[in-house]
């Protein structure tokens, strides 16, 4: 573990990303302490610019505190991103692993199913799903998962296809190892790096999709999120720039930080790169 950290910290951008990500997580964790109470609560000072009337980042059209919204929204964004990605990676790995490992008819069936999901533009598909299920935080997570897993499945299938004929896998067959163990213990660790990289990118995409959905009014109406604030402020961009700008920056920084961390993980996890000291 210390070794892993040493390799990770050699990449300064990744450390910076991790630092930012920790700040965002910290912000989400202390949101209830620094801004106790409901972020939807409105005050009698609508549209006050940053720094005035006690609003650090200003207030929106009905006097809600943008800073409080960002703090509470951070929790929503991170949770949705994380849960949706974990679910998508889980489904994608199972589909991809079986398709790639067994090939033939199994591969044909699983990949045709995957393609059906891939042919529909993902954001429109997500809108459709949320619209059908009625907007709630669960339905947003499900929608993001459903549109994200095919990419993982294809990636994992490719890796399994390439690895299953490698001699070390054949050696495992000659030792009498079972299929499930070969898949999990032998092949899967060899495709962890691309999975982690695509996973980290997916967390970022999930946050963007969630914001997009909220922006279109398809987020959970009872949960504060960054997309919701932007959606609320977009009509007032010219009179009150701060409403859209700050949550926008929050999304930008978080997505960037996650990408940097993903990249750093990839470098640190790949044993072949370790030699390049």
């Amino acid at each position: 573990m210390a070794d892993f950290w040493k390799r990770f910290s050699r990449n300064h951008q990744a450390v910076l990303g991790l630092l930012i990500l920790c700040c965002v997580i910290f912000l989400a964790a202390i949101a209830n302490i620094i801004y106790p109470g409901d972020p939807f609560l409105y005050s009698k000072f609508p549209l006050s610019p940053p720094g005035e009337n006690g609003f650090l980042l200003g207030s929106d059209s009905i006097g809600r505190d943008v800073a409080s919204g960002i703090a509470h929204g951070a929790k929503t964004s991170l949770l949705i991103g994380l849960i949706a990605t974990l679910a998508a990676v889980f489904i994608g790995v199972i589909f991809g692993a079986f398709a790639g490992y067994y090939g033939g008819i199994v591969d044909d069936i699983l990949m045709r199913v995957t393609e059906v999901f891939q042919t529909i533009p993902s954001f429109i598909f997500a809108i459709l799903l949320v619209a059908i299920m009625k907007p709630s935080i669960e339905s947003v997570v499900i929608a993001i998962t459903v549109v994200s897993w095919p990419a993982v499945a294809r990636l994992v299938r490719g890796e399994f296809l390439a690895l299953k004929n490698r001699e070390f896998v054949q050696a495992c067959h000659t030792l009498g190892m079972g299929d499930v163990r070969i898949m999990l213990a032998e092949i899967l660790p060899n495709c962890l790096s691309p999975i982690i990289v695509i996973g980290s990118l997916m967390v970022a995409t999930a946050i963007l999709i969630e914001s997009g959905l909220a922006f279109l009014g398809l987020g959970d109406p009872n949960v504060m999120s960054w997309g919701f604030i932007i959606s609320d402020g977009r009509s007032m961009l010219r009179v009150a720039w701060w409403i859209c700008t700050f949550p926008g920056i929050a999304i930008l920084i978080t997505v960037l930080a996650i990408n940097l961390v993903g990249e750093g993980l990839n470098d640190a996890l790949n044993p072949r790169l370790r030699e390049r000291k």
Partner: peptide, 17 residues
């Protein structure tokens, strides 16, 4: 009872183990 030695010493060992 019957085991195999492979050709490519780079592909025949799992790099993660």
């Amino acid at each position: 009872r019957i085991q195999m030695v492979f050709q490519d010493p780079f592909a025949s060992l799992n790099p993660r183990i």
